[in-house]
């Protein structure tokens, strides 16, 4: 580990720059894909009773009739100046709307990640110490079962239980944190639980197996020969060497958390990006769809860059480049 943060920032910068081609490719593909929609975009937006004049007007305003590459360059030029366009119906700046919605999704995804790790990792440590035991076997079975439950099932089951039968938690809706922190928490719990069903099981399995593999290492034998307790060995010698694997899985699970947010947000009517992208696609709000794609690509590039840097922070043998 270096005392200075500069090499890390530099490495982060290089990785973000490397994400630019991906960003361009994905956004261009999205622009081009809208050509595949049945009928013209303007027709779809205005509905089947639109007059040719109305369609021509809309095309003139938004350039829907231009070839894909022209539309793309137009969008890119504006985007580079910070203008992501306006939402189709409410005519709000896309960037502003997206920022508000993304905060909601990030809050849920972040909470689900923290919650899942906080449950799964200590449990995995405890089970690695008694691998093959009854409790370990039971938890492994439970984890397999939890992984087999699709999110659209867990949302129904959990909301049925906690909102309909027990009436502990609100079934739908959202309260921003800064308006009402407690209300925010109450609305947060169900979506986080739904996303965590998978995450807890996934992290538990990966972490347990990784801890077990680390326990087989020679340096664990020398720690045992020094008379350290199993608990001490788990916390001081097993946890950190196992973290790179857990970190990899954390990065990958971001894909699940974002994908899962589509289902969870639409089920609980939460105004996050998952919910937004579904309605934007339905409404043919192309500017919004494009902006969400940009955000998604940025998130992934950033997450994987952070995972890379995380390896270097955890493992002294890994150098940041």
């Amino acid at each position: 580990m270096h005392s200075s943060a500069t090499p890390y920032l530099k490495a982060l910068g290089t990785r973000l720059l490397a994400g630019i081609p991906v960003l361009l490719l994905v956004t261009f593909a999205a622009t081009a894909l809208s050509d595949l929609m049945a009928g013209s975009a303007a027709q779809a937006i205005l509905g089947e009773f639109a007059t040719p004049e109305q369609i021509a007007q809309l095309n003139a305003a938004y350039g829907y009739d231009l070839p894909a590459w022209q539309r793309y360059l137009r969008w890119l030029g504006n985007a580079l100046q910070g203008d992501l366009g306006h939402t189709l119906y409410s005519q709000q700046p896309v960037a502003q709307v997206l920022f508000d919605r993304a905060l909601v999704t990030f809050e849920i995804a972040f909470a689900a990640m923290i919650f899942s790790l906080a449950v799964a990792v200590p449990l995995a440590l405890a089970m690695a110490a008694r691998a093959g035991g009854r409790l370990d076997s039971a938890l492994r079975f439970a984890a397999s079962a939890m992984l087999a439950v699709p999110t659209f099932v867990s949302v129904v089951v959990l909301s049925l239980l906690f909102s309909i039968f027990l009436r502990w938690l609100p079934a739908t809706g959202w309260v921003p944190f800064f308006d009402d922190p407690l209300g925010n928490l109450r609305h947060l719990i169900l979506p986080v639980m739904c996303l965590s069903v998978h995450q807890v099981a996934y992290f538990f399995r990966v972490a347990r197996n990784e801890f077990l593999a680390t326990l087989q290492q020679d340096f664990i034998a020398s720690a045992r020969a020094k008379g350290f307790s199993t608990r001490y060995i788990l916390w001081h010698h097993v946890l950190r060497p196992s973290l790179p694997q857990v970190l990899t899985v954390m990065g990958l699970s971001m894909t699940y958390l974002l994908g899962g947010s589509f289902i969870v947000e639409s089920f609980f009517a939460i105004p996050g990006i998952g919910w937004t992208v579904l309605s934007a696609v339905q409404d043919h709000d192309l500017a919004m769809v494009q902006a969400i794609l940009v955000l998604t690509v940025l998130i992934f590039v950033l997450v994987f860059a952070l995972v890379d840097l995380g390896y270097a922070l955890i493992d002294p043998r890994v150098e940041v480049k």
Partner: peptide
């Protein structure tokens, strides 16, 4: 464990694998 840990030292075969690379 405590008795032997406090009074017996063991040196194993493979020093690279026997040291914790993370510490």
């Amino acid at each position: 464990r405590r008795l032997l840990g406090a009074r017996v030292g063991v040196v194993f075969q493979n020093p690279t694998a026997s040291l914790n690379a993370f510490e």
